[in-house]
């Protein structure tokens, strides 16, 4: 993420003291250094409520992941219930796609299954009804 120029913030209802202990006792042992991003504390769930991912029944925040662009606009999100972890590579792929689209100022779009190196589409009146010539369904899947 740092390589992509992306700032990461993590948020849970735990206190900053528990964040410190989790970093020291477990996470830093996984990566042999301190967690390289701020671990935020949302003890009353108010941030989670604002983003729609706070679960009142269990009093915790579900696995909500939000991509926010340099203008502060939410470009994408994904929310999972607690037992299933995220796919970080998919977040990286989406960020690369959003960065490409932004750099092209909307001249390019990334079709289903796009990843870096694969063909983008350039929306124009001529492309309407002709995507079948430019793009094959097989490109939606990994090689």
């Amino acid at each position: 993420m740092q390589k992509l120029g992306v700032e990461v913030l993590t948020i849970s209802v735990d206190s900053i003291y528990v964040h410190k202990m989790w970093n020291e006792h477990e996470l830093s042992k996984m990566i042999n250094k301190d967690i390289p991003f701020p671990m935020l504390s949302d003890q009353d769930g108010s941030i989670g409520k604002m983003y729609g991912i706070y679960d009142e029944d269990t009093g915790v925040e579900t696995r909500g992941r939000f991509i926010i662009d340099p203008d502060g606009i939410i470009q994408g999100f994904e929310v999972l219930t607690p037992p299933v972890g995220r796919n970080i590579s998919e977040s990286v792929r989406q960020i690369k796609a959003f960065q490409l689209v932004r750099e092209s100022q909307g001249a390019e779009a990334t079709p289903s299954g796009w990843k870096p190196g694969k063909k983008t589409l350039k929306p124009s009146p001529d492309l309407v009804g002709n995507i079948w010539k430019e793009w094959k369904v097989s490109e939606a899947f990994d090689d």
Binding site: S12, V13, D14, R63, R65
Partner: peptide
């Protein structure tokens, strides 16, 4: 927030001009 040995206050608005990935999770 806890960040590299320090306690600090973090605002999302500080990150205007940058791409941000926010991850909520159930608990430490």
């Amino acid at each position: 927030a806890y960040y590299q040995g320090k306690f600090m206050n973090v605002s999302l608005s500080e990150y205007i001009g940058k791409w941000v990935l926010i991850c909520f999770y159930p608990g430490d």
